[in-house]
Design a protein around this nucleic acid. Structure first.
Lengths: 260, 260
DNA sequence: CTTGACTCTGACGTTACGTCATACTCGACG
DNA sequence: CGTCGAGTATGACGTAACGTCAGAGTCAAG
């Protein structure tokens, strides 16, 4: 006599109610995400309570959370949901960054195609540049600790294309200046000024985080195994004399700072 | 004796050169996207020209173009690439819009969770609201012509959440005002003022496009088959007296305007 | 009791590869 | 010349989240 026991829904109606398909209900049933009652003939019978659960599933799915995670998440919900949401937001924000890059790349390519009457190949090259910039942050991941990667992902949000542009230029300027100063004594004022610029630029990437710095070190030491196209890209910086010289200069810098 | 014939690459090296995996090369080979020469033993031998093609593939893939389309696109390239790029940009921009919504939804949910000490269920409800808002634009597509959909997609970019909010409120205000004015004569000044507001709001959506208006009409006529949750959402607007009355008022309006 | 509308359970298709497993091949070293 | 480690080839299964039949049973109205 419980008036609150509404007549249960069958698949079709329940699906419409929640805005999903019947097949989706089957799927979630098999995965154990949402197991409704059955009648004698095996028909699925969904109650009002099931709707709530399904809505939660749909909500999380909407955020791009994989069904497997949704399942574990809903098993012991209370504790982990806030964290899960925050993590998922990070993921979404990263995706948006990539999307923004892609959109910008297409815009560039379109402009190149229309205004300049350039070839298809030239237009695609524009896109390739953007890819390389961002995939470079992908393959390099293995050199960083989990912790360092998290830090980098944080800081990456501050990296606008303009900043990227500027930093690139600063590195190339600095490198050229160092090459012109290889004869200076490592302890000289001029050399130490270069060291200062160098350090600033490195810190611009590491943000002062020692974990990140360590990863960067790993990355550099393994430079022989970098992807070929990255090596080509880094070719302007391949002059070993510069690196050797800078390591001397940095050693001097350390001495100066420990005994001022 | 052709110096330009560099030694061809084998899979591993070529893959590194382009920043993909060997397996990817196999895959593209099987799909017919990139078929390199083979040596006597069946080893794949990639030439410099292949690199260019692979880079183009990677570029388009980066933009989210499916491999099948890439294949047809590269078969007869020159003509279709610009259009393809523009179309793909539209797709990307739409994805970005959805992502923005999702991120905003999570932010809301996080705030609700932290500040208000609300339950998980309440937080997820926030997200559900956002989903329904945007999936509503999904299921309704079938009522519109291809042309109308394109127009809507165009205009959708102007639809900020704030605008959405405001328009919702205007509709609900208008509906309430009409309900209160059902006794007014359809030709009366008061009724005609309501008709004016009504028309403005509809035009705010159609943008004056007759194709879109037609689709909207189809949509309304088939309201019996709308998804249940949409019907619930539309319930505040289900008062048939209002619709009947407004159709009279709109008829008067047409007469007035044809014989001023 | 008949029908048309629904439902059930497989099972294969989709996308762009990753990941084995098994069998060859290449090139340097002794 | 033989061999061994590194690289390669093919085939087949796995992934995520369902879509789309196919074949068979069920429900409810007339």
């Amino acid at each position: 006599m419980d008036e609150s026991q509404h007549k249960p829904y069958r698949a079709r109606d329940f699906a419409k109610l929640a805005g999903v398909t019947v097949r989706t209900l089957h799927h979630y049933d098999r995965l154990g995400l949402l197991k409704p009652r059955r009648n004698g003939a095996g028909y699925r019978l969904y109650a009002a309570r099931d709707l709530e659960r399904l809505e939660h599933i749909v909500a999380l799915k909407f955020l791009g959370v994989p069904l497997k995670q949704i399942k574990t998440l809903m098993a012991r919900e209370r504790i982990e949901l806030p964290d899960a949401l925050t993590r998922q937001r990070r993921v979404l924000e990263e995706k948006r960054r990539l999307l923004d890059n892609a959109i910008a790349a297409v815009r560039d390519a379109e402009t190149a195609l229309r205004s300049g009457q350039r070839s298809d190949a030239a237009a695609l090259k524009k896109i390739i540049e953007v890819i390389e910039m961002q995939s470079d942050t992908e393959w390099a991941k293995k050199y960083y600790s989990e912790e360092a990667r998290a830090t980098i992902d944080e800081r990456k949000r501050l990296w606008s294309p303009e900043l990227q542009e500027r930093v690139s230029k600063e590195w190339s300027d600095l490198f050229r200046d160092v090459e012109a100063a290889l004869d200076e004594h490592p302890a000289s004022e001029k050399a130490q000024a270069l060291a200062e610029r160098w350090t600033k630029l490195v810190e611009g990437f590491t943000g002062g985080d020692p974990e990140v710095a360590k990863g960067l070190n790993n990355l550099y030491k393994d430079r022989a195994n970098w992807p070929t196209h990255v090596q080509q890209q880094m070719q302007p910086y391949s002059n070993q004399k510069v690196w050797a010289y800078m390591s001397q200069v940095m050693a001097e810098r350390k001495r100066n700072r420990s005994e001022p």
